[in-house]
Design a binder for these strands. Structure first.
Lengths: 368, 368
DNA sequence: TCCGATTTGTTCGTATGTATG
DNA sequence: GCATACATACGAACAAATCGG
């Protein structure tokens, strides 16, 4: 019934819609007047009006009393919903509050609401939510991709977003195939470089790295770690690096470290993926009777509460998550305003900053 | 123009809408036929159809070909939007992530999306957001009231929510005038009782309390503190309690405590509003050359990272925020399912649990 | 500033098609 | 099959807003 091509108003409606979608009628164009359409299509004006009413209701055109009927810019979207979707991986993550705070600050100031989606770092969930969001009436999206180091199988969903004129901004991570899309990232490579370089300058020579294998941050921090080593003229030994995954994050790092030490490997410094891992490692070293920083230096990442409040303050990397949130929101707003004919290709890296605390020792000086 | 009462179809539409909203026409009722309406209102059938088309579009009625036009159940809401609004006070708060995680878990499992609103504990913002949400197409709301200890001047907005068939659940706090509304709260009184009683049982006699004056939690924890003192037969001295506000939370507690000690007041235990205050107090005591728990015992509240990771583990109160979130979401879902003829009046208190760490000393034993 | 042609908005009458009970 | 009710369609008239002259 709803596809009944016999109905006159339906055929006219479809014909006009096709002309709009194909570009024959462009945004802002004035449509033929009702009487003119009635003449050319051999219909009564009433029937023409019915077809136009449906198109107006669906947001394709707008009738202006006394002037004419005009084709709208963003077909199919009646009005701005003033809703932005924010898709994140973890809510439990200790950096999430800062991030969402930054996003909320900018967006709420501009009258937008946030719809929150949490993937739990699952690709399947991400795809599911993107599909759901496509059915909803959102104006834009800020997305932290799940397992961003893996090839993305649902690029088509992002393409559908673009077809629906829904701009989006990547944060924290980015799929390889989409590196030109607007995004805001932390300079994790630089952060990894900073901590490693810090240890090297304090006279460390045998620096183990512990990194997360299944996200961009892990890979980037590792890249910085390698860069610092090579710059200092040290040989990069893959054996010296421990890789862990989301699933084994609670045991793998300390277990693998014990293993390394059992193999008789000399270690004087450990660059950890983040503060949580640093805490875990320090706990494990303590149990083995080693003290930080006297016997071994340890660095963290994130400048979280762990780093500030733990027994031995952790030397770590601060990265302004709140600012990242703000910048991502700002970038999205720009995209919304310019109704981009050619999508603006803005990408930004946010600088990391070294925070020196008590978990690293200057090995060039003797212990007192 | 949109309020033009001169237009016939507009008047008929408004008249029918009024009859539906007032209950004269009930859900499921069959409306008079188009011809009948045309006769009784002295209109052409076309005009009647226009009015009915608008009502159908707005979701009040549904026309069934060959049968008649019927009044729908949830007037004005076309379909379930599957969106729930979550209104919180602070995003920066260290308990927010747990809370939202619990809410998200239950709601996303049931196919709902969350729209997030953050009031910054401002009444004005809360009212503003409620108005905004009323225009949006949400199915329900979970709300943490702002400055819940003050009288609520915008109850009318909550009444409008009910008129629009949008159920809501209060969490964390509750306005005095709305104590029968569905809510889920932490038993803060019990928590305050537990820590105070713990100190008393360890032989403390001069227990100072530090509480937040501008939220329900502060008042309730204070109530528990008083209850424990009275139960133990101690005199409750108001001078022994320090009240602070959101604005002076960073200085007031430690400053007022110094003042008390300067006045020569004997103190052997301090019950703090939360872990953050406990950390602040412990820092301040340290500067004065006092050690915790040897010289003074201190308790916190929240079982946050501060309590777990600080130098001296803080004896504190755990309250499962994630569970609170889950229960609130569950309660809201119940409300949504039952489409309550009489709003179900469910209220629940979640039990507090004492976590003993190292910040309290047993004063009945001598120090070694 | 006003006029008048054009265009959309409202309202009526009438006829026919089609689904329901 | 028939009455009833909604759906589509045509024609006509007037009202109200727009816009160029």
């Amino acid at each position: 019934m709803s596809e009944d091509g016999k109905l006159k108003y339906y055929r006219l409606k479809e014909d006009l819609k096709e002309q709009i979608l194909s570009g024959k009628i462009k945004a802002g164009d004035k449509l033929p007047s009702e009487n003119e359409l009635a003449r050319t299509y051999c219909l009564s004006r009433h029937t023409v009006r019915k077809a136009l009413a449906i198109l107006a209701d669906a947001g394709y055109v707008e009738a202006v009393h006394g002037s004419g009927t005009y084709c709208l810019k963003r077909f199919g979207k009646k009005r701005e919903s003033k809703i932005i979707a924010v898709v994140t991986t973890y809510l439990s993550n200790y950096i999430f509050p800062k991030l969402i705070q930054g996003i909320d600050k900018v967006l709420s100031e501009n009258g937008y609401s946030i719809i929150l989606k949490n993937t739990g770092n699952s690709r399947k969930k991400e795809a599911e939510y993107l599909e759901d969001l496509l059915t909803k009436d959102i104006d834009g999206m800020i997305i932290e991709p799940s397992k961003s180091e893996l090839y993305c199988k649902h690029v088509y969903l992002y393409e559908r977003m673009e077809e629906n004129q829904i701009p989006y901004v990547f944060i924290q991570g980015l799929y390889e195939q989409m590196e030109e899309k607007p995004h805001i990232l932390m300079d994790d490579c630089q952060g990894g470089y900073l901590v490693t370089n810090h240890l090297i300058r304090l006279g460390h020579r045998h620096i183990v790295g512990i990194f997360k294998a299944d996200d961009r941050q892990g890979r980037e921090r590792h890249r910085g770690y390698v860069k610092a080593l090579q710059e200092a003229g040290f040989l990069y030994e893959p054996d010296q690096v421990i890789w862990f995954h989301t699933e084994d994050r609670r045991e793998k790092p300390s277990a693998a470290l014990k293993q390394l030490r059992k193999q008789g490997r000399e270690i004087d410094g450990i660059v950890c993926y983040n503060d949580e891992i640093a805490i875990q490692v320090m706990e494990s070293l303590k149990q083995e009777g080693l003290s930080v920083p006297e016997d071994l230096s340890v660095t963290g990442y994130d400048d979280s509460l762990y780093a500030r409040e733990s027994e031995v303050g952790i030397t770590t990397i601060a990265h302004p998550q709140e600012k990242l949130g703000e910048m991502a929101a700002q970038l999205l707003l720009e995209q919304l305003r310019h109704v981009p004919p050619e999508a603006s290709r803005v990408q930004r890296l946010i600088e990391a900053k070294l925070i020196v605390r008590d978990s690293c020792r200057d090995r060039k000086k003797q212990l007192v």
